[in-house]
């Protein structure tokens, strides 16, 4: 077990390092951010001074060296634009993103589990076909477009919910959250709904497929033969076994949600890390982009690690290697 932990730990460090190298190499392709910072009438000396202040005077290799050495000291570098530690900028906005991601995940699970179980248990019914067609539509539509349509219908036309932005926030365990007040929650509904649709559609399909597999298993047939009622069999035996594989895709789904949050947050002007990334790309704010990607990579690696452990706990047949 201990060996496994160290192995995974080394793996995490290697992944993060690879990401940092890759990002640094790629970023050397982008335009020089100095020109966005200095006024248009800046002279050569002023530009040189700005470069020095932003730490852009050195070669990329030296810059990377600086980055790594300060990384070891826990310093992730600072934003060109905000002149604040990049990590702090990300952490400040993280609660907003987690809020919609978690709510989206919850919506997806709550809707997908019954639908998936149903479609998997009686795959030949017309309503099951409708569910499947619906989920295929959900996979096929661009999420950002759906968000726009939802805004147009529910915010602009019906004026039921606000069209964008985050509502009032409250402190909860030191984090700023918005779901505690009704007004805050109203702001949350559309973005979370938009974000959930893709995941929801995929979940339905996964659960259905697993359910169909499970239904073929002998113990289900036994249970049915013993006269257990259908609903009980479905949810007690069927669902339980169908859900195990879900744990493995949890990491992937979190990844997708975080990724698509960039689009959702941009549409809804939701002040999370996704919008920060997109804004930083527009502004050429290299340090924030680097730290964002490393941070997200770190999150994925950790989530996948937890998933592996969970999987081993849930399904004892699998031994942690």
């Amino acid at each position: 077990m201990f060996g496994y932990f160290t192995k995974r730990l080394i793996q995490i460090v290697v992944v993060l390092w690879a990401v940092s190298v890759l990002v640094f190499v790629m970023m050397s392709f982008t335009g020089d951010p100095t020109y966005m910072m200095v006024p248009l009438d800046a002279t050569e000396e002023q530009i040189a001074q700005a470069r020095r202040l932003l730490g852009l005077n050195d070669s990329h290799l030296v810059q990377y060296g600086h980055f790594l050495s300060s990384l070891v000291r826990g310093d992730f570098g600072r934003s060109f634009v905000f002149r604040q530690p990049a990590m702090q900028l990300i952490l400040e906005r993280l609660p907003a993103t987690l809020e919609i991601v978690i709510l989206a995940m919850a919506i997806a699970l709550v809707v997908a589990i019954p639908l998936g179980v149903y479609a998997g248990a009686s795959p030949e019914r017309a309503s099951s076909h409708a569910v499947m067609a619906g989920s295929l539509v959900g996979i096929s539509l661009p999420g950002f477009w759906l968000g726009m349509v939802l805004i147009y219908v529910f915010a602009v036309k019906l004026q039921l919910v606000p069209s964008s932005g985050r509502g009032p926030t409250q402190e909860l365990f030191g984090l700023r959250v918005s779901f505690l007040s009704w007004e805050g929650f109203r702001h949350l509904i559309l973005p979370a709904l938009t974000l959930s649709v893709g995941t929801l559609a995929i979940l339905i399909r996964i659960i259905r497929a697993e359910m169909m597999e499970v239904m073929k298993q002998d113990y289900i047939k036994f249970a049915r033969a013993k006269g257990a009622d259908r609903r009980g069999v479905l949810f007690k035996h069927g669902l339980k076994n169908a859900l195990i594989p879900l744990v493995t895709v949890f990491g992937l789904m979190m990844g997708d949600l975080i990724a698509f949050a960039t689009l959702t947050e941009t549409i809804f002007a939701w002040p999370g890390i996704g919008k920060l990334l997109v804004d930083s790309i527009y502004r050429g704010d290299r340090p924030v982009i680097v730290v964002y990607l490393m941070f997200v990579a770190f999150m994925f690696v950790v989530v996948n690690f937890v998933v592996d452990i969970l999987y081993a706990v849930i399904d004892p047949r699998i031994k942690v290697k």
Partner: peptide, 11 residues
């Protein structure tokens, strides 16, 4: 171009 590239490009 987005402005992040523009000002360096036309410089």
């Amino acid at each position: 171009m987005p402005r992040s590239n523009f000002f360096g490009y036309i410089r």
